[in-house]
Design a protein around this nucleic acid. Structure first.
Lengths: 227, 227
DNA sequence: GCATTGATATATCGGTCTGATATATCATGT
DNA sequence: ACATGATATATCAGACCGATATATCAATGC
């Protein structure tokens, strides 16, 4: 889960731990606030397995900055300032910058294409994979969408069975189940439109006919579903 | 989290571990498939702290069945059958039946009324508390709903900031964030209607004027929200 | 000037939950 | 007779979270 997110981030740019946390929090909103107690062990794990390499970057960076692309680090400004002021001592603030390796890219693609674990944070797992869907082969992408759709269909069936059978719910519980059902239906419609637009894209492979519009948004949902 | 769910279940009836798992899975759909690796430790924890007592119930139950209320246990049928067949040996299948104590009820109310942890499984945590909302004081119930609403408002703001600022998303990521935004809006509307109907209920406390209809379903959402 | 606050940065610890696995009893179908 | 599957409990490694510790530095206030 975390490994996939980290590798996905690093596949585009190199970062240090603290920055990875921020990106994961701000970029997609799928990870509220990754704990350092899971982030740093994850980075160690990935480094040990050779998926990433971490280089100790101890300030005092020369003007030809190999500073990572992040343009807003207090440390960098401090380094510049101290150099401008004539102090030769760079900042001693240590940052370990991580870079993905070829092995890492392979691992990333494996994780991304892997069968999703069921029952454990399904929504987050799917969301994360969808956010990196551009790295998937078209056919694998379609598989991802359809597996997620199946999950939701099963959930809808379970919710309906609950509503039909039991029934000894109080009004709060009843409202909870009702709302869940509606939400699941909405999710399924969304997936239907994603799947439809994905199939359309694959049907016309060569000429990229102005299909830059947001995928699956507001297009009539696939008619089959029977909600 | 699990403790709250377990105590809530046991507050109505006594169960053994396996049955608790089933109920948690089937009843609300909030827990997909609780792992025994968390369930049994949780029960031990609760027993050690005096919130529940577990009595080893080794089959051979007399006909005046103090069998827990679950009417569908293979073991029970087996016991009956073996008795009918003249065998004095009851089933040796051991089950540990857990019963909530007064301490446990107190702990349950504390957990239920406690400030929800943020960021960690917010949806599940809220859903669980809503399912037990009947055990809350009206004012605490309103607090629960309004805290949840605040969470969602914050999420909506964050998602909009993401959509506004960044913008270097591919079509999949864009669709993901769009869909999340819609879902959050839907959740807020739902909470608005729950809050509205809760306030209405509290405004007219004495005469229970036919308010048995499902709470907050289909009623015009509170107008203020500005979605 | 200098102290407090807050952002940046890494690390570790205890505790909770998951997934896998082991072990056993019993019912049912073939 | 034998396999399959539901019932029932238990344990383990590993992932993740929340809290906490530590340190550097910027900005703010007095």
């Amino acid at each position: 889960m975390l490994d996939l997110a980290i590798l996905g981030l690093l596949s585009e740019c190199e970062f240090h731990g603290y920055e990875i946390r921020k990106r994961l929090r701000d970029e997609l909103g799928l990870f509220a606030n990754i704990s350092f107690g899971s982030l740093y062990p994850a980075l160690s794990r990935l480094e040990l397995s050779g998926a990433v390499v971490g280089t100790e970057s101890i300030g005092a960076t020369p003007a030809s900055a190999p500073i990572p692309l992040t343009g807003s680090l207090g440390g960098e400004r401090a380094a510049l300032r101290s150099r401008r002021a004539g102090t030769t001592r760079g900042t001693k603030r240590s940052r370990k910058v991580y870079r993905i390796t070829d092995t890492g890219r392979r691992v990333f693609e494996e994780l991304l294409a892997a069968e999703e674990p069921v029952g454990t944070d399904e929504a987050r797992s799917f969301g994360l994979r969808l956010a990196f869907a551009r790295h998937l082969a078209p056919q694998a992408r379609l598989g991802l969408l359809e597996r997620r759709r199946d999950q939701l269909i099963r959930r809808l069936a379970a919710d309906r069975a609950r509503a039909a059978a039991g029934g000894d719910f109080d009004s709060y519980t009843r409202s909870l189940v009702e709302h869940r059902t509606e939400t699941t239906q909405h999710d399924i419609s969304w997936l239907d439109s994603l799947i439809e637009s994905e199939k359309q894209k694959q049907a016309t492979p060569p000429t990229d006919n102005r299909s830059t519009r947001t995928v699956g948004s507001r297009s009539a949902a696939a008619k089959g579903t029977e909600l």
